[in-house]
């Protein structure tokens, strides 16, 4: 059964991804969502088209003397390297994770190296550049995340199960975009354990005493 995606990426995120100005961790969430969402894929194509129009209109400085010839030489040199990498691996037929996420994990759900972060919640940090952090979270069905606010932006995309907070119900493929004004306590829906991809560009602010103690260990 395919469930319809209800919570999509914002225009600001799609435009910044099209422009290439998002930190890698946010780009990973965008690429993962777009892999599953035809609606956002079409919107992304529009934003890339704006990029094409901007390029057309950017101005035309002189190229260096002999630039075309240098490029033709470069084409000859690049050929061998290109031929070596030709066949990009075909996307695997099925699995929980879309291809961009699988590239970061090194496989599907069974390849994730989980670490406990207290209670039954587990996480796995994914390697990205310093602009923001990306992690997978595993929240057992019915369990709550600590209540927290945000000092920056937080994107949470559901890959399995579902969670709920004051803003609504988020199922597979849905993305919650949380900004500084938002404080929430996501609770994993009963039924299936919830697996989410989370990207944050600033540490979260926990309101309870214990979670604040745990923060240095959790690192979120």
């Amino acid at each position: 059964m395919t469930m319809k995606i209800k919570h999509h990426l914002t225009d600001e995120l799609l435009m910044a991804y099209a422009a290439g100005s998002l930190p890698e961790a946010f780009s990973l969430v965008v690429a993962t969502h777009v892999s599953m969402c035809d609606e956002c894929r079409a919107r992304l194509a529009e934003y890339e088209a704006v990029g094409g129009a901007v390029l057309e209109d950017t101005g035309t400085p002189e190229m260096d003397a002999g630039s075309l010839e240098a490029t033709l030489r470069l084409i000859g040199e690049m050929r061998e390297a290109e031929e070596a990498e030709t066949a990009a691996p075909a996307p695997q037929a099925s699995g929980l994770f879309p291809q961009p996420l699988r590239d970061y994990v090194g496989g599907d759900l069974d390849a994730v190296e989980w670490r406990s972060v207290g209670g039954k919640v587990r996480q796995a940090v994914l390697p990205t550049d310093k602009g923001a952090a990306a992690r997978l979270l595993y929240i057992p069905a019915g369990a709550a995340m600590p209540d927290h606010g945000h000092s920056g932006m937080e994107l949470t995309m559901v890959l399995q199960g579902a969670f709920e907070d004051a803003d609504g119900y988020f199922g597979r493929g849905d993305v919650e975009v949380a900004g500084e004004e938002m404080e929430h306590t996501p609770v994993a829906a009963p039924g299936a354990d919830c697996v989410c991809l989370v990207a944050t560009d600033a540490p979260l602010k926990f309101s309870g005493f214990l979670p604040r103690m745990a923060q240095p260990f959790i690192g979120i």
Partner: peptide
Amino acid sequence: RASVATWIFTIARNRRIDVLRKSRRPEPED
């Protein structure tokens, strides 16, 4: 799916992320 200018823009954008930001760019599944 794209105009030639748009396609070239995406190549240039990706190269800029590589070269200027020294970062990776995850791409959606085709």
